Computed example of a mutant assay.
Amino acid sequence: MSPFRGIALKLCAVFLFTIMASLIKATSDLVPPGEAVFFRSFFAMPIIIGWLFLRGDLKTGLRVKRPMGHFWRGVIGVSAMGFGFASLGLLPLPEVTAIGYAAPMFTVLFAAVLLGERLRAFRLSAVGLGLVGVIVVMWPRLSLDQLDDVAMLGVACVLISAVLRALAQIHIRKLVATEETSAIVFFFSLTATSLSLLTIPFGWAWPGWFGFGLLAASGFVGGVAQIFLTSAYKHAEAALLAPFDYASILFAILFGYVFFAEVPTAMVLIGSGIVMAAGGLIIWRERQLGLKRGKARPGMTPQG
């Protein structure tokens, strides 16, 4: 384990994912979300296949035990990606990023309902605090004197994407019991590429060569980001790396200002801070519980 390398890889992944989102946002007026999903998935495939080949995991990545599990993970993940990409064309990048922080909160709730994980009062309180932060970010959009149909549609798209991303995480937790990580990564890209083609009847468009380049770049960047993210967890524990997800708001503010002239509002900054505090509390509590479980294990009987 090399914690500093893991942190560096995680920050690189978050940075690249924010670049990918910026590229998608830049082309939101040129192509519909379904077409953007295709480019993001298709052009990530060579990167992922090359990575699996170099690791010697290509055969493993092509071998699955639960093909329908991968299919449904793909359906959920592609839908989440589509709604997320749609929101980028409707809202400022920092706002999309901040509202998207609801996904980990939904994951905690779904884990309790669908996986039977114990939902302790501390964690439930932190989830509630996180959702309050998300509401703070959205509040200006909910004010009666500032109602904007386009913005409200954007908020709805981000929230739907967050719910679907949380469901995808629950599905992945089930898949990892029988499937290799390389298989999950490879077949998601394959499924996403295939399913996105079903949106052709809803109107695809030629984005021009410059737009084509941006969309292709989103795929390459997204593929590299996925590799960095996967590699990070080989060098450091998930509990250590989790807080660095929140670096995305800093990158989103930077890119939003530089490339789209978007200045985050005070409500976005305050709400983001609340969500980050809530996420930090959950991570800290889970780490404490993990340390206690680790200390208890040596004294356990074989039955636990």
Rank of each mutant, 00 (worst) to 15 (best):
G50C: 04
L90R: 12
C12S: 15
P201T: 06
A21I: 00
V150Q: 11
F38R: 04
L195F: 12
V258M: 09
T265H: 09
S87M: 06
V275D: 03
T97A: 11
H235T: 01
A236R: 05
L197Q: 11
G128P: 09
I24L: 13
M152Y: 00
L119E: 01
G69F: 13
V64R: 06
I253V: 15
L289T: 05
A111K: 11
A183W: 07
A242T: 13
L54C: 10
L190T: 10
V31S: 02
Q226T: 04
T18N: 10
F43I: 04
T230I: 01
I7F: 05
T301R: 14
T178F: 07
V96H: 01
S272E: 01
Q146E: 14
A13V: 02
D245E: 13
A205F: 05
M68E: 13
A80T: 04
P33C: 03
I270F: 14
A111C: 12
L229P: 00
F4M: 15
G256I: 04
V14L: 05
V150Y: 06
L62C: 13
F228P: 00
K295M: 14
S41I: 01
L215V: 09
L16N: 03
A126F: 09
L241T: 00
F260K: 07
V31K: 03
L198C: 08
F188A: 02
G61E: 08
E262N: 13
T193D: 05
V150N: 11
Q169D: 13
K10G: 03
R297Q: 13
I99P: 07
L23P: 08
W204T: 00
L198H: 06
